[in-house]
């Protein structure tokens, strides 16, 4: 019994020693900004891939195939070592904020490829007749996409988009490779200095991510049912 209390006290002392919640907060912010960035870029890419202009379709497909098939770690490392260290791309004067923004950029360009493909799968749920009817009343490509195709495509894409957002949330840990002080980096430091409670350290972060991600899954399941287009 004493041993257990001792172990528990040792575990609790972790939270005084390390800012676990602060680290999670960094990941939440990474996920939030990268979600916005990847949704915007991914929507533009999806529009390019369904556009009537062959060169835009080609460019969209090339982007997706390059970024979807490149490991995220390499993209983040390239951001820091290539864009920042070599090419002097500076996104903020503050040292830490700069790395944070580079990580958001890397996460956004990577996940935009998956967002694009999710939206394209949503576009495939929209019958061809919807686009034909839109064209028949005189809407050209962009208005037809904005008013008729995309609103239905997004509703059909909620579940795959949710999967992409879940992956994005967990992939924010890769930002550790870009020198952002977040959970994965903190966990390694904790393991190094507090190997006495190593199992609890793993468990803490695992549970932390489950708590973060479950609401995304619940929300997307709810929305995909509620917003489904009746045909």
């Amino acid at each position: 019994m004493d041993g257990l209390t001792e172990y528990f006290d040792a575990y609790l002392s972790l939270f005084e020693e390390f800012d676990v919640l602060g680290a999670f907060w960094v990941n939440i912010q990474l996920a939030f900004w990268a979600a916005i960035g990847s949704l915007i870029l991914g929507t533009v890419l999806a529009l390019m891939r369904i556009s009537p202009v062959a060169s835009l379709r080609w460019a969209g497909a090339a982007y997706v195939n390059i970024f979807r098939n490149t490991p995220l770690t390499i993209i983040i490392a390239f951001g820091v070592l290539g864009l920042y260290a070599q090419l002097n791309l500076i996104l903020a004067d503050d040292f830490d904020l700069n790395f944070f923004r580079i990580a958001v950029l890397g996460l956004s360009v990577y996940h935009a490829a998956f967002v694009c493909e999710s939206i394209r799968s949503g576009v495939n749920t929209v019958p061809l007749g919807q686009a034909e009817a839109a064209r028949a009343i005189g809407l050209s490509f962009l208005p037809a996409a904005r008013l008729v195709i995309m609103p239905q495509a997004f509703r059909g894409a909620i579940a795959p988009l949710g999967n992409t957002m879940i992956a994005l949330t967990k992939n924010t840990t890769v930002a550790a490779a870009g020198s952002v002080a977040e959970t994965a980096g903190l966990m390694l430091a904790m393991i190094e200095f507090r190997s006495d409670v190593i199992l609890m350290i793993f468990l803490t972060f695992a549970v932390g991510y489950v708590i973060l991600v479950i609401p995304i899954g619940l929300l997307t399941t709810y929305l995909s049912k509620k917003l489904a287009v009746a045909r």
């Binding site: 007749g129 034909e132 009817a133 064209r135 028949a136 009343i137 050209s140 509703r155 287009v229 045909r231």
Partner: peptide, 23 residues
């Protein structure tokens, strides 16, 4: 392009499958 959209707006079309905007 726009010229085609303009001309289509003057031609009404009714489809076999109705194709009303579902949303």
């Amino acid at each position: 392009g726009k010229a085609l959209a303009k001309l289509r707006s003057d031609v009404g079309m009714v489809f076999q499958a109705f194709n009303l905007f579902a949303h």
